[in-house]
Structure formats: structure tokens, C-alpha cells
Simulated assay, not measured.
Amino acid sequence: MIPDLVIFDCDGVIVDSEGPTCDAIAKNLTGFGFPLDRSGVHELFVGQTLHDIHRAGRERGLALPDNWVSDLYAEMFEVLGQGVPLSDGVIDLFDALEAQGTRIAIASNGAIDKMRVTLTPYGLFDRLKDRMYSGHVQEPKPNAGMLIAAMKQANASPKRTFMIDDSTAGAGAAVAAGTHFIGYSEHGGEEKLKPLGVDIAYSMADLRARLVI
């Protein structure tokens, strides 16, 4: 089956930005009295928006200010602006999918401005900005809204749509939207995906073998 549409998460799938992002969050929360390292942030918060983390921090009794999200994004952008690696083979996969008539889109719980920082150096922000969905604009995953909007724009059937994500939130969104799901674990996250019993890919070449006919 040639898919109508393949929807990609951004962080940890298209770009390997999870590490620097988690480091920035860990450093910030540690400064507010909640000591964390990269692995701790990934364990507690992977797939969540910064607004979710803000709420969770306050529920833990941290004195996070109202402007915490915007302040942390400023810190994060400074780190990400130094450059993050693109997942090997992702542009070739995009090209191959579009060559067979499959549409591509992005559905990320991160902000559009964050994707602008990480994707612009590779030409992918301009390429995909008209089919890019953010959990800061619509309901974040595991809600289905971003996936439904992407399918509507692409005139795609849920039965012929795939969601590629490294988080359980992405898996939940795929179930809610009635689409296929492939977990992505090139940069980590397998330990959270395996208990779901989902199909897991470990590279863009692995995805290509499943999605390009």
C-alpha cells in the first residue's frame, strides 16, 4: 500500500534535538530546586509541551513564574541555534515519499518557532511550513487534532496515513485519529515504545523500507 500521507514528529525524529532540549530543561528546573539530568527530563516529560511541564512543575511546588515558558524557550533557542543534527537519510526519505505521491507533514508538540530554529538550516522549514502543525497552536498529542487537520489538508484517509513519533503521546494521537503508527527509536525512547506493542523503526532507511513501495 502506498500511503496517502506520512506525518512526522520533529524532535527526536526529523532532528536529533532531544538531548540539547532536555539539557536546557534540566538545567532550568534544577535552578528552581528540582534537580534533574537529561535522562530524568526524558523519563518524566518526553512528548509533553513546555506548558504541560510548567503545570507539572507548579503541581510539584516549584515557584515557576508565569513567563517561564517564554523564558525557557529563549534559553533553548540559544542552544539549538548552534545547530542540531538532522537524522541521517530523512531528506532522501521525504523525496522518495513525495516521488511516489505520498504527502508529508509535521505534527509536533513543540512550538513553530522552535521548528524554525532546528529545520531552517536544512531547508526543511520553508519546504514544510504550510503543512506543519504545533501543539502550541492546536491541542497537543495525544489528542488527535493535529493529525486530523493534516489528513484533511492532504485529503488523506486515516487507513492510508502513518504517524511517525518517538513518544507515547504520538502513539496515543495515532490511535485517537485512527491512523497507523510507527515508533521511531534512532535516538532513544525504545523503552517507552516497546511496552505499547507498536511497530518500531530504528533509522530512516528502516522507515523507507516500510513506506516506499
Rank of each mutant, 00 (worst) to 15 (best):
M1W: 12
I2C: 10
I2Q: 13
P3I: 01
D4H: 02
V6G: 00
I7H: 05
D9M: 01
D9A: 00
D11S: 02
G12A: 02
E18A: 03
G19Y: 12
G19M: 13
P20N: 01
C22S: 15
C22M: 06
A24Y: 04
A24I: 09
A26V: 02
L29H: 02
T30M: 05
F34E: 00
F34N: 02
P35K: 01
P35I: 04
L36F: 00
D37K: 02
R38V: 11
G40Q: 03
E43S: 15
E43M: 09
E43T: 13
L44S: 06
L44E: 10
F45H: 04
V46K: 15
G47H: 02
Q48A: 07
Q48T: 13
L50Y: 06
D52Y: 11
I53C: 12
I53E: 12
I53H: 12
H54K: 08
A56N: 05
E59P: 09
R60C: 06
R60L: 14
G61Q: 07
G61V: 09
L62D: 08
A63F: 09
L64V: 06
L64M: 12
D66H: 15
N67S: 13
V69P: 08
S70C: 13
D71A: 09
D71I: 08
M76K: 14
V79A: 08
V79F: 04
G81K: 06
V84A: 03
L86Y: 03
L86G: 01
D92K: 07
L93V: 00
D95G: 10
D95I: 04
T102V: 06
R103A: 10
R103C: 12
A105P: 04
S108Y: 03
S108R: 00
G110Y: 04
I112T: 14
K114G: 07
M115L: 12
V117C: 06
T118F: 03
L119T: 13
L119A: 07
P121N: 11
Y122C: 02
L128R: 05
K129R: 14
K129N: 13
K129V: 08
D130G: 06
D130S: 14
R131V: 14
M132K: 10
M132N: 15
M132A: 10
M132W: 10
V137M: 11
V137S: 14
Q138G: 15
Q138A: 14
E139W: 11
P142W: 11
N143R: 15
A149Y: 07
A150Y: 04
A154R: 11
N155C: 10
N155F: 07
A156S: 07
S157N: 14
R160V: 06
F162G: 07
M163V: 13
M163L: 15
G172N: 12
A173W: 02
A174S: 10
A176T: 08
T179V: 10
H180D: 14
G183P: 08
E186Q: 12
E186A: 09
H187S: 03
H187E: 02
G188M: 02
G189C: 01
E191T: 13
K192A: 11
K192L: 05
K192G: 05
K194T: 14
P195F: 00
L196I: 03
G197V: 02
G197Q: 01
V198W: 01
V198E: 03
A205K: 13
L207D: 06
L207Y: 07
R210T: 06
R210A: 07
L211F: 06
